[in-house]
Every structure is written in structure tokens, then in C-alpha cells.
Write a protein that binds this DNA or RNA. Structure first.
Lengths: 207, 207
DNA sequence: GTCTATATCCCGATAGAC
DNA sequence: GTCTATCGGGATATAGAC
């Protein structure tokens, strides 16, 4: 859970500094926000000099990208767990929307690193690849749309945008601050998803 | 459009430093992003010392909050213009969703200050008040829902979240980078809005 | 009252020693 | 692989010029 122990000489010395830095960064962002994160403070917490991280990460953004990759792994786990394979396709999609909102609330550091750090996606291939498990799960939309691929993509995009919107509005405090806010945001994302499914015929208006 | 001229002695001296700083901040954020913005650089561009801004703004966040307020004024103008009072209520709501996306694309500095700066809303009353014109325009939903107030609020929330989601995904580059991306995002936000209207009966699921 | 000058502290990043 | 040393720059706060 926490970081590996220091070496025999009191210094950090046994190899997994990279992972230790990612862990420290997540804690740090959780405590002080993205702006409160710094390479120097993360180094201090792990017990190495402020120059040490640069052996593992090219710069600050590269460390944040590693945090974002971790975020996508956690997110995929949450979606897989909460949106269990049981249930009809509609319910699965609704559960994914709920999981999206819950992820934003329960793993703020990861969510922020993923969506608010302004990372240049074209620079981090590993980050692009980490989306694949999530995209794979979004494939339930093809069942809902009975094989119509274009309709499925339109629905997937609409649901993703809606879930993302509710998640970010929740993070910005628009639904309040407590755990009640999470419930509200998740419920609304869920019902919006149902409405999108119900009204999906309007998703591709004839030009 | 740009900032006021310097005083007779080449120094900035005639009173509207506050406005000049907001203007400079907007340009700066447009060029270098939120993280690239600093009080020091904004001061430099206006031609005052780095301590001068603190006479008008308590800290960095206070200046960003002023930028955000400006953003809401511009946003309200865009919505009022693009979503003109003509047309049926449905069309007005769709036009608002489009305007939301276009605002994010065309006024990135303002959008970022408003939604990505992590400003503590409870600290800036002026910022809360600046939402009122926008909220007022969102009232078209009551017409769509034929007076059912609870249904209207649910629809307004869903549309706002969806528009916000498309806007932020666009800003993060998920639809690509050119002006084609803006078109795509605006079209999808518009059709998602239509789908939400069509499927709005599902927005408040029986508990 | 508004701005300048100045001092302190922290951050990002690099170069070279071990 | 990590450390020491170091450079440039930004944020905050205070004292004082006009």
C-alpha cells in the first residue's frame, strides 16, 4: 500500500524508486491538489534528492503521466467490478456511468492526473494504450444498438461525454461537497444514460 | 480590445491596472496555458513591478477568478447570440449546447480559468453571481417540460453535464485538434441534447 | 494610495562526482 | 542510480519613494 522501505544505510537504494515516486505523487496530489504537487516534495517524501527522479522521469509531466496510467488501471478495475458482467446491456452501460462518477470522487488524484493535468497525449504512448481495457468494456453499446455500428459509436460517445461531464461538475463542487454529492451525481449520470438510450434515435439526426 | 496605454513617463500609471492585468492574463493563458500563467509574467507584460498586482488582487487565484468572471460574461453573450430567441424551445436548448462547446474552443483561456483552475467558489461571490445570466437562459427547459419543474431541472442538469463533457473532451484533444474537431464536438453535443429531450421520461426513474 | 526595491523561500532542471 | 551543487525563475511579504 505505502512505499517500500529505505535501504540499510537509511537511504533509498533498492530499485523501485519509480513506483515509490508514483505512490508519493498520488498521496501528494490527494493532499494538496495538482498545483501542490512538485517533484521536489515527492522526492522529499520518498527520501531521495530532488535530482533523483529525473533518472526515471524526463520531467514533471512524465511522472504525472505515470500517475494517469495507474489511474486508468484502477478505473478499469472499478468499472469491471461495479458494472459486473451480469445484467442486461442497458444496465451494464448505466453501471459504467456510475463507476465513472465514483472513480472521479473516490480517486481524485488519479482523475485529476488523467483529465486536468493538461498532459500532451501524443507524447505518452503508454497512456494511450492504457485506454484499451476501458474502450473494450464500452463495447456493450453494440449489443444495445443491435449491431448498428455507427449508432453504437454515437451512443458510446454521448454516454462517455455525459459521464465525464457529471464527474467533472462533481469534482468542481457543483453538486456540493459530501458523500451525498457523489450519490446525486451518480444518480444523475445514471438517469441521463437511460435517457440517452431511450432517445438514441435522435443521436444521428438526418442531415 | 488590448490594454490601455502607458503613462507619460513610460510607466503604467493611469488607474486601470486591474483591467490591464486581466487582459494580460487572458493572453498569457492562451499562449502558455494555466500553468504557464504567473503574476510575475503578467506584471512584466503590463509594465509594472511584480508586486504591483497585489494591490488589486489578494493572490494569484483572485486574478484568475476575475478572468473567470470575464469568461462568464463572454459566455452569456455567446449563448444569447448563437442561441437567439428565435426558434422553438428545443432548438434554443440545442443552440445553447452548441454555444457551450464553441465557447470552450474559441475562448480557451476563459474556459480554463472557469473550469480548470480549481478555484474555491465559496471564496468568490462575484463569480457565483456571474452565473445568473446563464442560469436564466437555461430556463427554457421549463417550456420544454410544460411546467413540470422537477422534470425541467433534471433536463437542465443533464444537458449542462453533457455539454460540459463534450467541451472538456474537446479541450483535451479527444476529438482531434483542428477546427473540424470543434464541428464534431458541437454536432455531438447537439444531437445528445436532442436525445436527452426525446428520452427525458427516463430522467427521473421511479425509485 | 499606488508602485518600486528588495529579501526569502521553493521549484524545475542540469552537470558532474561517487 | 543516486548525490551535491547550482542556475534561473516565480510567489509572498515588507519597507520605503512619490
Amino acid at each position: 500500500m505505502t512505499m517500500p522501505p529505505a535501504g540499510k544505510d537509511g537511504r533509498y537504494h533498492h530499485g523501485d524508486l519509480r513506483t515509490a515516486l508514483v505512490d508519493a505523487a498520488i498521496d501528494l496530489i490527494a493532499e494538496r491538489g495538482l498545483r501542490g504537487f512538485s517533484m521536489a516534495e515527492a522526492s522529499r517524501r520518498v527520501g531521495v534528492s530532488s535530482a533523483a527522479p529525473y533518472r526515471h522521469f524526463a520531467d514533471r509531466d512524465a511522472l504525472l503521466a505515470a500517475v494517469a496510467v495507474r489511474g486508468l488501471q484502477v478505473f478499469a478495475d472499478m468499472v469491471a467490478t461495479e458494472g459486473g458482467d451480469a445484467g442486461r446491456p442497458d444496465d451494464q452501460l448505466v453501471a459504467m456511468a456510475r463507476a465513472y462518477v465514483r472513480f472521479a470522487a473516490g480517486q481524485r488524484s488519479l482523475f485529476d492526473a488523467l483529465f486536468s493535468a493538461g498532459l500532451d497525449k501524443s507524447r505518452y504512448q503508454e497512456l494511450r494504450e492504457a485506454w484499451e481495457p476501458v474502450d473494450a468494456m464500452l463495447a456493450v453499446v453494440t449489443e444495445i444498438c443491435a449491431g448498428d455500428q455507427a449508432a453504437a459509436e454515437a451512443l458510446a460517445d454521448a454516454v462517455e461525454a455525459t459521464a465525464h461531464g457529471h464527474a467533472t461538475l462533481l469534482r468542481d463542487g457543483d453538486y456540493g461537497r459530501g458523500s451525498g454529492a457523489v450519490q446525486i451525481a451518480a444518480d444523475r449520470a445514471a438517469s441521463a444514460t437511460l435517457a440517452l438510450i431511450a432517445g438514441r434515435a435522435a443521436l444521428r439526426p438526418p442531415r
